[in-house]
Design a protein around this nucleic acid. Structure first.
Lengths: 205, 205
DNA sequence: GCCTGTTTGAAACAGGTGTTTGATGTCTAG
DNA sequence: CTAGACATCAAACACCTGTTTCAAACAGGC
């Protein structure tokens, strides 16, 4: 059963690097030091292997830093929002260099059926927790859609540092990386906080 | 020479749908009503065809609504920012359903050499124009990095509606689409304007 | 030691890929 | 009319893909 795990690890690297289609089982088996037939023996076919790799990658990702929950620390909502954003930005930018992150990025750009199971258990909790925090920060009660857009704005400002990295790299360097997490978190949280306060006092068109 | 253009059009559709690797020249030639050898006859090889398709797609994209330049209309900077963001959001969300947009999205997620030539002539002007507008909106002079982060935040808030659409679709519907462009532009411009004003009055950590 | 189920191995298979070939048609200049 | 360039076509080529086959090696229980 050791070769099964070897194949799983090797497949993670190969799929992260080349994607599902372009990643070959021969490459995987070579890296795992196994025979070509091993993939079909243990996983049935290539597609099934991929599904298991996604699960494997998710388990690896989940074992990292846990999400800071509202109320877990006795701080004001504003600084908690900054803490949460810092956690999210770190998660995003840390992913950039790992196989797990590159795999997830591929899944986000071109989702496969394998993602569906994880999405409900991964994306939704993150989003609803962020909603709670933003609502706590806001001086007035935010409607559902209004709240949603604020959260999307925050997510978007963080995600762009990875999903738009191919664009950003083509501007004048230096590019933003993991070391800039704090600065990015500062900026995004300031933007978000000022947005909810501004929208609370001004009349929205 | 008509078949050359037919192949170009067909290849745009095939590459947008399946990507460079998974898109086959046989599929392209079938759609174009041409022989398999036509691709190599007119374009040398598949990679070269892809490069020309990227150029072709860019020309199609450029012939759409032009970017609203600062000073072209006699309006205050704030409403001009909203106008610019609306233009950008529309461009982003309109792309979602067209072959050109899907191709560009693929290129952004996994850039090929073909993108390099376009990037300098497409991304940079957009970004520098946005920088000018944000600077005009701001009550105080913004430093290079500060200005850059504001612009990235705006870009990110718009881009997320496409790059993160696979995530957003998994939240409770209805999802945001082209018809919500105005609302999104309102929200993003309000956020951006309040951010530059807030950061101008508060002391940034 | 032997037997049984599990695991590995080299080779082959069937199908699809981009590309090349050489013949055939088509049109235009001399 | 003819020569030559251009364009199209069916067929074949060489290669790579995931998958299967079947024999050999290995494991542990009796």
């Amino acid at each position: 059963m050791a070769t099964r795990d070897d194949i799983l690890d090797a497949a993670l690297g190969v799929f992260a690097e080349h994607g599902f289609r372009a990643g070959t089982v021969r490459d995987i088996c070579d890296r795992a030091g196994a025979n070509v037939a091993a993939v079909n023996y243990y996983f049935g076919d290539k597609a099934n292997l991929y599904s298991e790799v996604i699960l494997h990658a998710y388990n690896l990702a989940s074992s990292s830093e846990p999400m800071p929950l509202l109320g877990s620390e006795a701080s004001d909502p504003a600084s908690h929002l900054r803490l949460w954003i810092l956690w999210y930005v770190r998660r995003i930018l840390q992913f950039e260099r790992t196989d797990v992150g590159r795999l997830m990025a591929r899944e986000m750009a071109e989702p496969s059926q394998a993602l569906d199971r994880l999405a409900q258990r991964s994306i939704l909790p993150v989003f609803s927790e962020l909603s709670r925090i933003v609502q706590a920060v806001s001086p007035k009660f935010l409607g559902e859609r209004e709240l949603k857009m604020h959260c999307i704005s925050i997510i978007g400002q963080c995600l762009v540092y990875r999903s738009g990295s191919s664009m950003l790299e083509r501007l004048d360097p230096p590019h933003f990386g993991f070391d800039d997490s704090e600065q990015i978190a500062d900026h995004v949280s300031h933007t978000a906080i000022s947005a909810v306060h501004y929208l609370a006092t001004e009349t929205q068109s």
